[in-house]
């Protein structure tokens, strides 16, 4: 999205989106399979540093990262901390119970959440949708009908938003009262969703007709040229190297300077 538009281009911006996607997916699986608290803390820290260095966006926007980070941390950590199994009980109040095991496990999940967030944002802040889909079509043979449907839909989204704002005003004008109670709330939601979706369906249908009128053959990959060529370059190697080094740093940091040194949080 243009909101994350960079003010300076870094290596990561110049990397082929498919390579980026591949590397980030690998990082993602690595994080999923990491069960060591210290390693995950270092991962969260190092990927956050990478994000700050490589996203290339204005510094004030980086503050916005705090929101997904906090959310990822809290949402991931809280239930495990408060409701996890464990023998060494530190604190208990009604159904809430914090044990040593559940605390560390929750902490682990919280940092894991941050690591995921940083990895995801590394991709999102440095990749334009259009570039990504062009790369997917050319390098991974994604069928054009899917790629262009996505790109066209993204183009239509701001119109949906505009209509939402108009609808809100229109409901006010028509004198629709604020809703109370779950039943009313559902009815109220319907007052928004039905018109917006109806307009969207009609609009999507028209765009599809216009695309086909422009000789777009969505079914077979007709001989196609591409306006934006997707090529591999030395930046791909640099990015892979850089992120690999980041991973190594995380593991090295965890083994030389551990924070807790408790190892696997599953305590098996």
């Amino acid at each position: 999205m243009s909101f994350w538009g960079p003010v300076r281009h870094t290596w990561l911006h110049r990397t082929n989106p498919v390579v980026k996607l591949g590397v980030i997916c690998l990082l993602f699986f690595m994080t999923v399979l990491t069960h060591d608290l210290d390693v995950i803390i270092y991962q969260a820290m190092i990927f956050t540093v990478c994000l700050l260095l490589l996203s290339g966006i204005q510094p004030w926007k980086m503050l916005l990262f705090l929101i997904p980070f906090m959310m990822a941390f809290l949402a991931s950590a809280s239930s495990m901390m408060l409701f996890g199994k464990g023998d060494t009980i530190w604190w208990q109040w009604g159904l809430f119970k914090i044990s040593e095991e559940s605390f560390y496990r929750g902490l682990h999940l919280g940092f894991k959440g941050i690591a995921f967030a940083a990895e995801g944002l590394l991709l999102v802040t440095t990749t334009q949708s259009v570039d990504l889909f062009y790369a997917l079509m050319q390098k991974l043979k994604l069928r054009p009908k899917y790629a262009y449907s996505f790109m066209a839909s993204i183009r239509l989204l701001p119109m949906v938003w505009e209509e939402f704002l108009i609808r809100r005003q229109a409901l006010k004008v028509r004198g629709v009262q604020p809703a109370r109670g779950p039943r009313r709330l559902v009815v109220r939601a319907g007052l928004y969703v039905v018109p917006l979706l109806a307009q969207s369906i009609r609009r999507a249908h028209r765009v599809a007709a216009a695309m086909e009128a422009k000789q777009f053959d969505g079914d077979r990959s007709q001989a196609r040229t591409y306006y934006y060529p997707s090529q591999y370059s030395r930046y791909d190697v640099l990015t892979v190297g850089l992120l690999a080094a980041a991973v190594c740093c995380a593991y090295a940091g965890a083994s030389y300077y551990p924070w807790f040194g408790i190892g696997d949080v599953r305590f098996n």
Binding site: K145, S149, L157, S200, A208, A209, E212, G218
Partner: peptide, 15 residues
């Protein structure tokens, strides 16, 4: 799936 099927699906889902 025709182009219009996919487009409608994707747009509705994006909403």
């Amino acid at each position: 799936l025709r182009v219009s099927d996919i487009l409608v699906t994707v747009l509705v889902s994006l909403v």
